[in-house]
Design a protein around this nucleic acid. Structure first.
Lengths: 131, 131
DNA sequence: TATTTGTTATATAACCAACATAACAAATTA
DNA sequence: TAATTTGTTATGTTGGTTATATAACAAATA
């Protein structure tokens, strides 16, 4: 798989797994309907504990990104199933706020931050008009 | 002061303090050259421990936002002193990435996320062209 | 001089991250 | 059907972080 763990990061391992799976889906490495590797397989692959991966999968389920079928496997939900709720939109905005605020206080302009956002989108290979 | 602590948030108290001070500066509630309250005063004000606020101040210093003068006080650095280093820009982009990626996977469009970013800027009362 | 300041030190309690091991029961596969 | 694989649950341990409390120090300030 495409996941790389940085053991001495301040980001917890289970969070690293969660983020990189999300980025993998955004990038198109994985599609709706695809099955994630079993928690044991991925854990062995990454050299981490089974429960660490399991925690990540449940975080993904809580975010509404995958469906875990007990004793069967984890499946990436289709985009149709993933309807953006107002709560999710609010959550994204809540996550965005401290990042933007810090950037501004450090002296970044709105234009710079917008440029960075487009750069991130480009990294995720998401088509943006004008990129 | 303008800081409100949510004790049962999953965000640590010292992190809440850090973020709200950053937002306060971005919003213009505090300006460059202003002195932050002493760690003891702010701690008493918020009903938290001295060391919790102290940790927050040192986080702000590490981010390059304030200067702590030993046995004197903490001062908000001027925008001129705060020159955006490439490392800082990269850090902002690194912080931005998981938020944007999650939004996209949940079904948000680039336009929606850009709109949210402008909303955040508006909350921070930062003038953006066309707002 | 007395007060206020950040600093440093020590100690404690609670919680979280991560690991290890084991067993269970349902789903899948051979 | 039998063996394997699956997520689930349980228990325990280790290490680190968060947050508190208390105390003392030395420099800056009033």
């Amino acid at each position: 798989m495409f996941i790389k763990i940085e053991p001495q990061s301040d980001v917890p391992i289970y969070e690293q797994v969660t983020r990189q799976i999300i980025e993998g889906i955004a990038r198109g490495d994985m599609q709706s309907g695809d099955t994630l590797p079993s928690v044991r397989n991925l854990a062995a692959d990454l050299g981490v504990n089974m429960h660490t991966v399991n925690k990540s999968y449940h975080e993904l389920e809580e975010k509404g990104i995958i469906t875990i079928r007990a004793k069967s496997g984890a499946i990436i939900r289709s985009t149709e199933e993933r309807i953006l709720t107002p709560e999710q939109l609010q959550q994204i905005e809540k996550n965005l706020k401290p990042v933007v605020a810090e950037g501004m206080v450090l002296g970044a302009t709105v234009e710079q931050i917008e440029r960075m956002m487009k750069q991130v989108c480009a990294d995720l290979q998401i088509p943006v008009e004008g990129v």
